[in-house]
Design a protein around this nucleic acid. Structure first.
Lengths: 338, 338
DNA sequence: TGCTGGCACTCCCCCGCAGTGAGTGCCAGA
DNA sequence: TCTGGCACTCACTGCGGGGGAGTGCCAGCA
């Protein structure tokens, strides 16, 4: 096991490297941190840390740089989550208050996160799977054309057109609307299928086809929308990435355009608590020099979606984690209120 | 006025520069284009073109590069709109078919445009101002809590929560819903305010407050949503921008994050036909080395929103314009069908 | 055993330099 | 008005040497 001081050296290396973006040498370390030992000793420690794979040097006779493994240790053992300053807290409030729409909430969250962390922010729309039905509305647009509107407890609205096999009267429509709502309102989406499965039977024969169509569209919507949408922002922060631009930034931008990739990225985050994926820990290879900090957020005690940031492995982990957590909490509150 | 041949030289310069990304010299020009004259003659022409401000040289003894003014002339006089190849047309169809949602249509359009032009694509959601009301729905969520849902002919749905000043009965609600719809369905959003203005008077005194609240929320929604939403994609294509990355790409990414800027950009495009803004013609200075090609699209004969691409001034104008126009038309068709 | 100072060594980085070649401008002649 | 020829400019490349930051190792000391 690594001695206390060696861990301290690693911490110092990470902090300095994050600050300066340059390999850090033994002399500079002793000058900027009160380690109480000489550069030579630090050099020995560094040799050990390098043997263990926590740091590396770009080339002989250069300073050291933390490896993914080094950052991992730093995050797990050496770094806390830095709480936000109170001006920052106030900024969050100012920024988020005044959001009306769910869209608006998500959009503001993205901007806020990007601004606070100076990195790329990713926010997933509240998921349908875990949320509950607030209301189902059926509108008649034409004799054999309906519109289905689904409203969730998180304020999300989905709509679908339905072409009916046969004309559907206003009274039948009102009937279906009422029965549908009485069964599913307040229930979880996952439970809906079995709750409505026997509904067609209670209708006249001529209406059954339409009722079935409506129901299957409803169920389809549930399934389809489990594929989540998300919003990203702060991509301009990618330009602060490093010196060797094109090669680094390109794959990241490409990955960010692939919703699927991002969703998987966020999805990997465990439900409870914050997840940090560092460099190669990310499955996607375009993101091998980035870290992802993600956390779930929700209107109640339960996470309905996730949000996080994507940035260079060389990032300020404590600060980033603090910002992500704070924002997630605040968004959760907002959702709970509405 | 410039002679025929000089224009031809300009065209050749633009084409070569767009292809190679390198300043083009007189010798290379005569080799790659059948101008029928010697390099020396071309040099003289170039001198004239430079005097007139159509081309410039990065430094003495380098080849020439088109200026914004040069591109402008090229676009106005020398370049047509290149129609898409039939494989490309088929690609559009394959790509767009199967879109269900309005969201989906917009998302697919963005990806398609980005892919076809290999540039950054921007698509504005169909605007509410010009579209018409398909349906207004009122749902009672709690005794004194309503949800207003607004559905447009372009398939867009907006919803708002309403806290009522007083409880509102189901019959009153049905009544309001019916009267509201009978007045506004099929009408343009711009006309709605005057169509509903006397509606509260026809209700019982106790309900008037609520009716007014509902109406003002409706009108607010119309106004608010005139601030359009939009979707962008293909930012990874920015990496093909040039060699001097950070400085070029950064302001562009920043500009792209500012919806306001983008909306203004698209807004500047005239209603009819395609608009090309080259380099400094764009008001926003972060975009001074980019060009914007935009065009309106709509479900009928009238444009309801705009779409376009943002790319380096050094872009393939005919091809880009062709792709933008084709996509706009196709999206228009899709909207008309649904 | 662990820490320290000293010392030789290794490379990266920066700078100046000359050679190369593409491209230009100008001029005299067809 | 076009053309070939010619001198000139200047970015780009490759090379070599000094400077410096940093390392690894070793011998001495608590």
């Amino acid at each position: 096991m690594l001695s206390e001081r060696r861990l301290e050296v690693l911490r110092a290396i990470v902090q300095d490297y994050v600050g300066t973006e340059e390999p850090v040498g033994s002399k500079a370390l002793t000058e900027r941190h009160k380690l109480g030992v000489s550069p030579a000793t630090v050099r020995n420690d560094m040799a050990v840390l390098e043997d263990e794979g926590f740091i590396a040097q770009p080339h002989t006779s250069a300073g050291r740089i933390p490896t993914d493994k080094g950052y991992r240790l730093f995050v797990d053992k050496l770094a806390g989550v830095k709480p936000l300053s109170s001006p920052e807290r106030r900024a969050i409030q100012n920024f988020m208050d005044g959001a009306v729409d769910l869209d608006d909430v998500v959009a503001r969250t993205v901007r806020l996160l990007a601004q606070l962390t100076r990195q790329v922010a990713v926010v997933q729309y509240p998921s349908l799977t875990r949320s509950t039905v607030r209301h189902v509305e059926l509108l008649s647009l034409a004799p054999a054309r309906l519109m289905l509107v689904l409203i969730t407890d998180t304020g999300r609205v989905e709509q679908r057109m339905i072409d009916c096999p046969a004309p559907f009267g206003e009274t039948s429509l009102a009937d279906l609307r009422a029965r549908l709502n009485s069964r599913v309102v307040g229930r979880r989406f996952a439970d809906v299928p079995q709750l409505v499965q026997d509904l067609p039977e209670s209708f006249d024969k001529e209406d059954r086809g339409t009722v079935s169509t409506v129901l299957s569209t409803l169920l389809e919507t549930l399934v389809e929308e489990t594929e989540e949408r998300l919003m990203i922002g702060g991509t301009a922060n990618l330009t602060r990435f490093g010196h060797d631009f094109p090669l680094t930034i390109r794959p990241v931008l490409e990955a960010l355009e692939e919703q699927v990739v991002l969703l998987k990225l966020l999805g990997e985050a465990t439900d409870s608590g914050m997840t940090v994926r560092i460099g190669h820990e990310n499955a996607h290879e375009g993101l091998s020099s980035t870290s992802v900090v993600a956390v779930g957020y929700g209107s109640g005690d339960e996470a309905v979606a996730k949000l996080g940031v994507v940035g260079p492995t060389r990032m300020d982990y404590p600060g980033t984690m603090g910002a992500v957590r704070a924002v997630a909490r605040y968004v959760g509150q907002i959702l709970a209120e509405s």
